[in-house]
């Protein structure tokens, strides 16, 4: 019943680490760089260097390693599927055949390719979740808004996007809690949520979704009124209590990330 337990993607882990103290813009940009790098890497040596760098960053962030890896749990099936598909179809035809399953042949090249792609996905998920583990939703939205600000002239509604993101993130735990409560209330009235065929199960969701939507709309309405009551009129001319400021540590962190990226990309060519 504890839904929250499995939701670690997008969950903030409050700590007082050097990674937490970085400016959110630095972390967003660094994560973007790392995501690009992880897709550019062409060999295992590069991935190894990348993984070592990432492990060091996780250690520095003081986020428990087990917790960092738990973000993989919801996608283990995707990872497995990727691996299996790559093993059978990844290697170009004519590779060394390891074993056969009916018309399909698992090749050595496919296995290598599969492991590579899976490792890449794992590194991708861990590096992006490190961002959300170490950056509170408010900081994240603030950083996004500031980064998008220059594009406002091009019609990008930076403030509105950031506000929407803040609100959405803020209400995820609330909605999860609400869902859990409604599920329990209906189970107390004998609702059976986990037996029966797909149609039965889909119908069993109605008693949960209807109250959930009703309350989500009610909450949205209340929130809008509360915001207007406090004079919210959009981003124009709004000042902030916490000003974002780049500091020396951000420069160093940026240099470290760029250096590591260069090392990752070059390690394959030596």
């Amino acid at each position: 019943m504890e839904l929250l337990r499995s939701l670690t993607i997008g969950q903030y882990v409050p700590r007082a680490s050097p990674v937490h103290r970085l400016d959110p813009r630095t972390k967003i940009l660094a994560t973007t760089v790392l995501v690009v790098v992880v897709f550019l890497v062409r060999d295992f040596r590069g991935l190894g260097v990348f993984a070592a760098f990432l492990a060091a960053a996780v250690a520095l962030s003081q986020v428990p390693a087990g917790f960092a890896l738990r973000g993989l749990r919801p996608i283990w099936f995707l990872l497995l599927l990727t691996l299996v598909l790559q093993v059978f179809f990844g290697g170009s035809s004519g590779g060394t055949v390891l074993w056969r399953l009916g018309p399909f042949a698992a090749t050595r090249e496919g296995l290598v390719q599969g492991l590579f792609v899976t490792a890449r996905l794992v590194l991708l998920v861990v590096s992006t979740s490190l961002l959300t583990f170490t950056t509170s939703p408010v900081e994240l939205a603030d950083g996004m808004e500031r980064l998008l600000n220059p594009f406002r002239r091009l019609g990008v509604p930076a403030h509105e996007l950031a506000m929407m993101m803040t609100i959405a993130l803020r209400f995820i735990p609330t909605l999860v809690e609400e869902t859990e409560k409604i599920m329990k209330a209906q189970m107390a009235r004998g609702a059976d949520l986990d037996t029966g065929g797909p149609l039965r199960r889909a119908r069993a969701l109605v008693p949960i979704l209807v109250p959930l939507f009703v309350s989500a709309f009610r909450r949205a309405d209340e929130l809008a009124v509360a915001m207007e009551a406090r004079g919210y009129r959009g981003g124009e001319g709004r000042t902030r209590m916490k000003q974002l400021r780049y500091r020396a540590q951000d420069l160093w962190a940026g240099l470290v990330v760029l250096g590591a990226s260069a090392l990752v990309l070059w390690s394959g060519r030596i």
Partner: peptide
Amino acid sequence: VGLLFQYPEHQLFEATVFDDVAFGPRNL
């Protein structure tokens, strides 16, 4: 054991009062 949560009116979902109250017995 019948358990009534806080703000139990938030669990109502059916189109009519009758159907909502009937949810439990029908599940039985």
